[in-house]
Design a protein around this nucleic acid. Structure first.
Lengths: 349, 349
DNA sequence: CTCGTGATTTGGATCGATCTAAAATCACCT
DNA sequence: AGGTGATTTTAGATCGATCCAAATCACGAG
């Protein structure tokens, strides 16, 4: 039966194990076993208990269970404040996939406000642990020199990182193969007839940025194409991207950008130079932000499989909670190139 | 001295009230009082207990506290899966502001996967309640006919809605004054010399959409300008927006769009018609999505104060948890028009 | 010097589930 | 019928903090 509306709002206090036990004519322990180790019960008893469970629509009290088992069945996830104007680093998609897969494993996500790189950052994580508020963490936006993975690892706290660019190569992670994405972009552009393909990225030093640049370089070499003077950098600002792109205008017929934001800066720079993005110069972005589809011309972009990333994070974290000492798991997912107008005009040299 | 790294990882088991009590030479109850009702303690005792608390860097066990007080100090927030290609309905900004302000009030955010409008949607909320997993909810994306507010209200569950478009006008909410935003856009365009200002929105029936359309209409009337045949609708798709805009091309010199996505569709339609957005026809969007700043021409847009919305949600929810029977609070926040290139060229008729 | 009064402090029960270990029940064989 | 070992069920303690009510203390009045 288990009707939300009928049994759910039933008067007469909360539905506890004891109540179910009374109704089924057994002890509370037997009810507990019916839930957690049903194989221990005689078939008849199990059936009877399950009926009572169902009729009362019993749900265990999380706090009580948590107190006894010393496990909150909650996973911590720190949300960072997005600096205004930067592309949102983590989308709803990821969070939804994460919550959804966690739910299915009986876990929930606990959000907390984290200041990335702040001095008291470890303090926030530590606090949650000492309160027994979480059983583990999902980290995102790891960066070179990120101290969180090492710190958590040392404490023996289960965690997975979305991103493989932490201080040491320690612990489990899930990441998207950026190099694979930019290489796919190059392959696509070469197939369309392009030979002079520039890369617009961030200054060297960031894991993500260097990874994406590396994919471009590898693919260019593989096609025996020149990379000299075709790599330009800018911080993630339109104006800076504009001046960076100005330097390759005339030297390149296509641009692979490390982000959609940079790609937009590129659009702008091209228009300033009297060129038409998509027609005169092909452009491919990265991240497949919601705007990419809507631009004119619509922007080809490399889409990260955030759903899969979320699910993988959950799966690995569950493994790690079960067996903290097992060998770390690493999952590298391939992104997908979405071809749109900005790169689909046939190029004839 | 409450060092994260020293006392935090201290061996010898968890730091409990009993341990603190032992160290301070008092009973556990006294320590508990020191934390929850310090005015009951003699000054000397308080000082001694506080020292012990500090030296051991004690943190209460959330589950234990929660079990006894019947309050989880957690707030439920359902994340919906974004349909691919639609603008992300809720940004990191909002979630960060929400978590941050909740943290300061001693609460945390519990994320769960919710399918908006699904049959078993109430079930998800109900489950969290019967498990005593949350003390209340923050709802987002309320819509006309949304049954959640009425349902929660009837059950006496504390909640705040971000959005005032629920089934009945019941419960507390925080919202952004969309009409104010579009009216400000009209005022701005009128000041720049425009008289024929079209509105590009969604089909009638959605609270948010009608609100934004209403602001445009009110402002147009206030300026004694015609609204006839200047309101066009499309679902949130670029192609549909394109054909919608085609209908007003030539009749309008400016367009106020109900979202940045629609504004992008408008950009596209204008270019198709051989017109230049920003120069030939001014465009103003809504939401100030990350892309707005980066477009060429950069898009004027109405920015929602999501930080404030998040903080207001927390504040109101705290009030409601303290006193569930008090009169509902409603907060309507004014959005801010961000003027960029798409509407800043002087218009001379 | 005892008693009353209010300010402090404490013991014991409690929240609801799960653990351990022991008791009760059962099946089966001699 | 009685014993044996396995199966099934149960009693009681426990996790850590807070509630309630009772105990202890300080101190001035009678």
């Amino acid at each position: 039966m288990a009707r939300t509306t009928s049994a759910g709002g039933r008067k007469g206090g909360p539905v506890t194990l004891a109540l179910v036990a009374q109704r089924a004519g057994v002890s509370t322990q037997t009810v507990s076993n019916a839930l957690n180790s049903p194989e221990l019960l005689a078939p008849g008893t199990l059936k009877r208990v399950r009926e009572a469970l169902d009729e009362l629509d019993y749900r265990p009290h999380r706090a009580a269970r948590s107190l006894r088992t010393r496990s909150s069945r909650l996973i911590g996830y720190g949300v960072q404040p997005t600096p205004p104007g930067l592309s949102t680093p983590v989308s709803d998609h990821f969070l939804h996939a994460l919550s959804d897969s966690a739910d299915q494993a009986g876990y929930r996500i606990l959000l907390f406000a984290a200041l990335l790189g702040a001095d008291d950052e470890a303090e926030r994580y530590d606090e949650l642990l000492r309160e027994h508020s979480v059983d583990g963490f999902v980290l995102n936006n790891t960066y070179r020199g990120d101290k969180r993975p090492g710190w958590l690892h040392k404490k023996g706290v289960p965690f997975v990182a979305f991103g493989r660019w932490s201080a040491k190569d320690t612990g489990d992670w899930v990441d998207v193969d950026g190099a694979h994405g930019t290489a796919a972009a190059v392959d696509h552009l070469v197939a369309a007839g392009h030979r002079k393909i520039a890369f617009l990225g961030w200054p060297r030093g960031s894991g993500v940025g260097d990874d994406r640049a590396g994919g471009w370089r590898e693919a260019m070499r593989r096609h025996h194409l020149p990379v000299r003077d075709l790599r330009v950098s800018s911080v993630d600002e339109v104006d800076a991207a504009r001046s960076a792109v100005a330097r390759v205008v005339g030297r390149a017929t296509a641009v692979v950008a490390a982000s959609d934001t940079l790609a937009l800066g590129c659009y702008r720079a091209l228009r300033d130079a009297g060129l038409s993005p998509g027609r005169d110069v092909a452009v491919v972005g990265f991240d497949d932000s919601p705007a990419a589809r809507l631009l004119s011309p619509s922007l080809s972009s490399v889409r990260q499989p955030l759903d899969e990333v979320g699910r993988a994070c959950t799966r690995i974290l569950m493994d790690r909670i079960k067996d903290p000492a097992a060998a770390p798991e690493r999952v590298l997912l391939a992104p997908e190139l979405i071809v749109r107008e900005s790169s689909s005009a046939e190029h004839r040299p």
